[in-house]
Computed example of a mutant assay.
Amino acid sequence: MANNKAKKDILLETGTNEVELAEFFLGESSYGVNVAKIREFVPYDIKTVTKVPNSPHSMLGMLLLRGKTIPLVDLKQNLEQQDDVVSERPVVLVTEFNSLTNGFLIDSINQIHRLSWSDIKPLNQLISGHSPRITGTVHIKGREILILDLEYIIGRLFPEQMSRLTEYESDEHAPQVHESLQEKRNKCPVVIAEDSGMIRKLIINALKKEGYININDFDNGLSAYHYLSNLKQEAEANNQSISELLSIVVSDIEMPQMDGLNLCKRIKEDTGFSGVPVILFSSLINEQMIKKCKQVGADGQISKPEMKKMITYIDEILGLSENENNDEE
């Protein structure tokens, strides 16, 4: 039975672009979730589930787990997967991310795979628009494993709890942004790396509402790194400082092709990016992950969905806070 201790016993070296993927089955189909999001697996016992009237689609009820209740989602129903396979020993996948604990009913656990993020391929853009619950795929031993976007699933099921993930509104009661601060934000080129289309859109909308309008975004770390490398070459060819073309990088941690830790490590180890700050923005931020972020040189790490905190971090790191702006006057 997998648990926290098991996870801690198989920690990966920081910044090596590796991931541990838990493979499980729904019927005959294989799915995968990052082990870092998993708290444990527990046998499914219908006696521990209390149905909730008018509950969202695919929610089985509230699961009693060691004296506490958590939402339990029928993952097969949520994915609208039609098959006649009935598991004799269904399992509950218990996850922790975005400061929330949730349970997902699955048919069975297969195994944990140690992979490189480069092995995981993003979905074709034509397909991804119709399959927002899937962020990528990986081929292992003749099986195609679909990587699930659990944040998206929970966000759609419980929009009132996850409203911070799907909406961002500037504080109407906050003081008006100083005009010169707005102008400075306008001039700051920002690179975003985030594989979830929903979260990427949220970040971009929030940044633009606050005046950060010069944005280039990517759905995986490798594409972002290629773009950054081209910027560096452009700066070198024109005898420019990289800071003239790039102000800051904001990256997710979990991404196909190249994760945020490896992206950050590459940026920080390359003198051509000297002085470029990197913020890691993830649902996986905890004490252990904070240590990993610091090991690869991240200038800050923020838990999703703390959007206002992210804007404040960016302002402070770039020296654009309101206080500093007022001091200049």
Rank of each mutant, 00 (worst) to 15 (best):
Q125N: 10
R143G: 01
L126R: 10
F273V: 02
N238V: 11
G27K: 04
L126W: 03
D252M: 03
S283M: 03
V33A: 06
L115I: 14
I127R: 07
P90D: 09
M1S: 13
M255H: 01
W117S: 07
S87K: 09
Y212F: 14
E254A: 03
E287S: 15
V190D: 02
V85D: 00
D327H: 11
L202E: 04
S303T: 11
Q301E: 02
D74M: 05
L11P: 01
E144F: 07
E322H: 05
K141Y: 09
G142N: 11
I38F: 09
V296I: 13
E18M: 13
L12Y: 04
F281Y: 14
R156F: 07
N323K: 12
F41L: 15
G67P: 08
N34C: 12
Y168V: 07
Y227K: 02
W117Q: 14
K121P: 00
K8M: 15
K68S: 06
E167Y: 13
V42N: 08
V249T: 06
W117D: 08
C264H: 06
R266N: 08
R164K: 11
Q301Y: 11
G136E: 04
G275C: 07
K309T: 08
P53I: 14
R185E: 10
E18Q: 14
T166I: 06
D9W: 14
S303H: 05
Q81S: 06
T137P: 00
P175D: 10
K51L: 06
V278R: 03
N220R: 02
S29H: 03
L105W: 11
I279G: 02
L11I: 14
K209V: 03
F41Q: 07
M310S: 03
N17C: 04
R89L: 15
P56I: 14
D315G: 13
L63M: 04
S170H: 01
I267H: 03
S116P: 00
A36T: 12
L11V: 13
Y31N: 01
E88A: 15
C264D: 02
E23R: 13
D270V: 13
D299N: 15
